[in-house]
Nucleic acid binder design. Structure first.
Lengths: 201, 201
DNA sequence: CGTCTATTTGAATGTACTCAAAAGCGGTGG
DNA sequence: CCACCGCTTTTGAGTACATTCAAATAGACG
């Protein structure tokens, strides 16, 4: 359990690293004022399907997932968010429309939240923040594109190996049910894939 | 075949609509200077795998595709770009690293290209352009997320119906081979899906 | 310890793929 | 105008990969 000073320090460090430049105190003070700390306990929701996403969150500590439930009742995890990742439904947040997604905590998580009004204000007052957002958007888009690349051309086993390579920490941290859901396969299939991969090459 | 004035007029109209505000002449003059017209004939490449993507392009007229070739030699189309869309490999362009993708013209296409240096200059000099880019990034990310959503939870038929709904113009404009590749299925499967959908509901 | 959930294993099924061949379509040249 | 060529689309039969359903085993947590 972190105190608020530690949480804001985490955000500051993140921004500084991200923009690869000094972050002036006066800018960070504005940023600090705009973000509110929030504790989300395991299995609690930050967002539920049908709600409008009012916040974008920076994960200081913990692990969240964003998922949706399809017509057959199957859960599909779209993304995980762990320390130093951002969480929220971009579409719902920007357009202020109901979300198709649920976001909940896989572990007790400590977030810093900002709402759309405050974020738009920061866009005008804190150039460092704008730069950071630009870079995040770029990175998010590239990550999304890689995911599309993987999902349209890889088999279940290849997607697993790709994840093993790109985000090995996920495999240690999350249950196989969660990993399977993220990979777009069934837990039984993931189990078989792992067995096959362990015995063979 | 358009003259250059018509091409720049197309870009100006696009930006104006996108930012939902007036675009000052002095800003547009800067933008105009930064973009170079380029004609790409059918089947010609704008980018080939292994090259660094030096340009981002605005499609004034025509149709382009971005695709990659997997280990088995199968082509997978990541995205199409038609009139008023942007084309380029974002990752390669931003990081100036070799691209995994090919971009070629499905029809004779007229583009306006900008390189990274000029784009970064525009970022400083043309606020309208920055705003437009912000909105494009957001939109691209949301579109990518939808594609992930579809590819991890929909069957071949559902993906086809989703495309039929979201981009019906693609189906009129591109061959079934192209559509199949975009959907991540084989042409034979698409043919069967269409037959099934035509006879049944 | 007992309960609940996660993971593994097995057998049958289904969806999409591969390979092969036929049919359709568009453009070119005789 | 028709014959031919190349390319796309369709159709068929067999196959592979992943799913479903069911049951057994293993782990986690109170």
């Amino acid at each position: 359990m972190l105190n608020t000073a530690q949480m804001y320090a985490g955000l500051r460090q993140y921004i500084t690293r991200y923009i690869e430049a000094q972050l002036p105190d006066e800018e960070f003070n504005l940023i600090e004022k705009a973000f509110q700390p929030k504790l989300v306990r395991k299995k609690q929701y930050l967002l539920q399907e049908g709600e409008i996403c009012r916040f974008t969150g920076f994960v200081v500590k913990g692990a969240m997932r964003q998922y949706f439930v399809d017509a057959k009742g199957n859960e599909h995890i779209l993304r995980f968010a762990i320390e130093n990742w951002w969480v929220g439904d971009r579409e719902s947040f920007s357009h202020q429309t109901p979300s198709k997604y649920n976001i909940d905590a896989l572990e007790e998580s400590e977030l810093l939240l900002i709402n759309l009004t405050d974020l738009n204000e920061l866009r005008h007052k804190a150039p460092s923040f704008v730069l950071m957002m630009q870079k995040i958007d770029e990175r998010s888009f590239i990550a999304a594109q890689k995911r599309i690349h993987a999902s349209i051309s890889y088999t279940a086993e290849e997607r697993y190996l790709d994840l093993l390579n790109s985000n090995p920490e996920f495999l240690k941290r999350f249950s196989q049910n969660m990993i399977a859901s993220y990979l777009g396969i069934k837990p039984e299939t993931l189990s078989r894939v792992r067995k096959h991969h362990a015995t063979n090459g």
